[in-house]
């Protein structure tokens, strides 16, 4: 059962989940906010692809780039309008705000577009497969792996080599002290939301790419995966999030193979139970990171 096909598919799924978790942890690292609206950044990117895709003349890469940017803009917009004013208030206020933002975005789409699923045009290679020996591998999965490698290298560069990246890491460690260095709080927070949105946008391309359609509730499933993967990997570092994503992908594929067909509908529940049990023994997740619990203020 563990053949090349399984390995590539698992690595691909893990890559997608790693990007997904990373986007969530970026914001968490600095604001200590579990952003319930994160799934909606994926949704809006999906709708951007749907809307732009109506015009057949626009090449697919432009559509995708605009969709990714749109997710980043929406993410930044939610920060500006909703999260910034409640940032210094209680943690519950911020959590509830993110939940409200999520409901708001869903219902905006519900009213302005449709409650029903809409088609998203995709380039042909998304549905093609490649044969390697006995293994049949979807090209999409290889693209996911490639994209993830490029993004992880790029993000590592930004975080390690640019001043903004250093400031973001510092802010995740000690927020107030970072401000005392002259780093504007809003700059750092906005930057994390934009990166979070960009990652959500990239994930959206591949997520929507599975079914070639988008609906207002499409963000719920990836949000959950990001939640579970991050708590499993460790909320306190970006490395933890990436590890969590890959572990989740592996666990998911193993469960899919091992569970009998009658139990497959319980798969999500099984995943969560495993994770909850795991957390009881190791609440900090697989990877103990350096971030503190200090809140912004």
């Amino acid at each position: 059962m563990i053949d090349l096909e399984f390995i590539i598919n698992t690595v691909s799924l893990g890559s997608l989940y790693a990007l997904l978790s990373l986007g969530l942890v970026f914001v968490y690292g600095i604001l200590k906010l579990v952003n319930f609206a994160y799934g909606e950044y994926i949704m809006v990117a999906g709708y951007a692809m749907h809307v732009i895709g109506q015009n057949r003349g626009i090449p697919w890469y432009v559509t995708m780039a605009v969709a990714v940017l749109f997710a980043a803009v929406v993410s930044y917009g939610t920060e500006l309008v909703a999260f910034r004013p409640v940032r210094t208030k209680s943690l519950t206020a911020m959590l509830v705000t993110s939940f409200a933002v999520s409901v708001f975005l869903q219902n905006v789409v519900l009213i302005t577009i449709s409650p029903r699923a809409r088609a998203v045009p995709l380039p042909a290679f998304f549905s093609q497969t490649l044969t390697l020996g006995t293994a049949t591998i979807p090209v999409r999965n290889l693209v996911i792996i490639g994209t993830t490698i490029v993004l992880l290298i790029g993000l590592t560069f930004v975080m390690k080599r640019t001043v903004l990246g250093i400031a973001m890491r510092a802010a995740a460690d000690k927020f107030t002290t970072t401000r005392l260095m002259g780093v504007p709080a809003n700059l750092v927070i906005s930057a994390t939301f934009i990166i979070s949105g960009l990652l959500a946008g990239v994930v959206a391309i591949f997520w929507v790419g599975r079914s070639a359609s988008v609906d207002p509730l499409i963000g719920a499933a990836p949000l959950l995966i990001a939640f579970i993967a991050t708590v499993m990997g460790g909320m306190h570092s970006q490395i933890g999030a990436v590890i969590g994503g890959f572990v989740y992908g592996l666990l998911f594929n193993i469960l899919s193979i091992m569970l009998p067909a009658t139990m497959i509908s319980y798969r999500d529940a099984f995943m969560f139970v495993i994770v909850i049990l795991f957390l009881l023994f190791r609440p900090e997740g697989i990877w103990r990171g350096g971030y503190t619990e200090e809140r912004v203020g």
Binding site: Y28, K32, V34, L91, L95, F227, I228, T230, V231, M235, I276, L279, P283, E284, G285, E293
Partner: peptide
């Protein structure tokens, strides 16, 4: 507590 509690 905190994030892990909320998510769990």
């Amino acid at each position: 507590s905190n994030a892990v509690g909320v998510i769990t």
